[in-house]
Amino acid sequence: MTASWIINEYLDPCTLPDNLADAFPPLVEPLVDIGYTPVLYCGHQIVNGTNYMLICKRVMLAPVFSTTLVKCIIHETLPVQGQRHYHILSMEELMNIR
């Protein structure tokens, strides 16, 4: 297909900072029939806590199998009673992988 991006569908998982590596799996686990693999750790932003930007390979298993690259922003709160919490701020589809 002319002018289509052909992205390496075998993108290897990237290494995340330890705290984010521990927090990421429980954040995406509840998303049924969708698998997320971080392939690029872009960096972080200090705000009221910390924002982290990742590029992930998203594989949807149902209703139709598809693979997409997405930009994922995760927020880590400031510690409250020694606890930090993480939540997904946004997921933006970048492109389908052919």
Rank of each mutant, 00 (worst) to 15 (best):
E9G: 13
T50E: 14
L94F: 07
G43F: 11
C72H: 05
E76C: 08
V47L: 12
L16S: 02
N19C: 04
T2L: 03
T77I: 07
V70H: 00
E29W: 10
E29M: 06
T15S: 06
D22I: 11
C42D: 14
L31F: 14
L78Q: 06
P13K: 10
I88T: 09
G35P: 05
I7C: 12
I6H: 15
M60H: 07
A23M: 00
V80S: 12
C72A: 10
H44D: 14
P26I: 01
E92W: 08
M95F: 10
I55P: 00
L11Q: 09
K71W: 03
L69F: 01
L20R: 00
C72F: 06
A3D: 07
M95Q: 09
N51F: 10
L16I: 01
T50S: 11
H75Q: 04
D22F: 11
P13L: 07
N8D: 15
Y52C: 03
M60P: 04
E93H: 14
Q81P: 08
L31K: 12
V28N: 04
L11V: 09
R84V: 13
L69M: 01
K71D: 02
V47D: 12
I6D: 12
H75A: 07
I46K: 15
T15V: 08
V80E: 14
Y86N: 01
C56K: 00
Y86C: 03
I46W: 10
P26W: 01
L20Q: 02
I97Q: 02
N48E: 14
N51Q: 12
C14G: 04
S4M: 10
E92S: 11
T68W: 09
I46Y: 08
V64Y: 00
G82M: 08
M95I: 11
L61Q: 07
T67V: 01
L11S: 15
I55G: 00
T67G: 02
P79D: 08
T50G: 09
M60Q: 13
P30N: 04
I88R: 05
S66V: 00
D33I: 11
Y86T: 04
R58D: 02
H75V: 05
V80Q: 11
Y41V: 09
P26H: 02
I73W: 03
V59P: 00
E9M: 12
E92N: 13
M53K: 15
A21T: 00
P63I: 02
I73E: 09
P38A: 09
H44V: 11
N96F: 14
R84A: 05
A62R: 13
L69N: 01
I55S: 02
Y86F: 13
R98S: 15
R98V: 13
C42V: 15
N96S: 11
E76L: 04
Y10W: 14
S90C: 02
N48K: 12
T2E: 02
L27E: 08
T77H: 03
T68R: 06
L27Y: 08
L69Y: 00
L16V: 02
D12G: 11
F65I: 05
T68L: 08
R98T: 12
V59E: 01
L89E: 15
Q81D: 15
Y52A: 06
L89W: 02
T67L: 01
E76A: 05
D33T: 12
P17H: 01
G43Q: 09
T68S: 11
Y52V: 04
Y41G: 12
A21M: 00
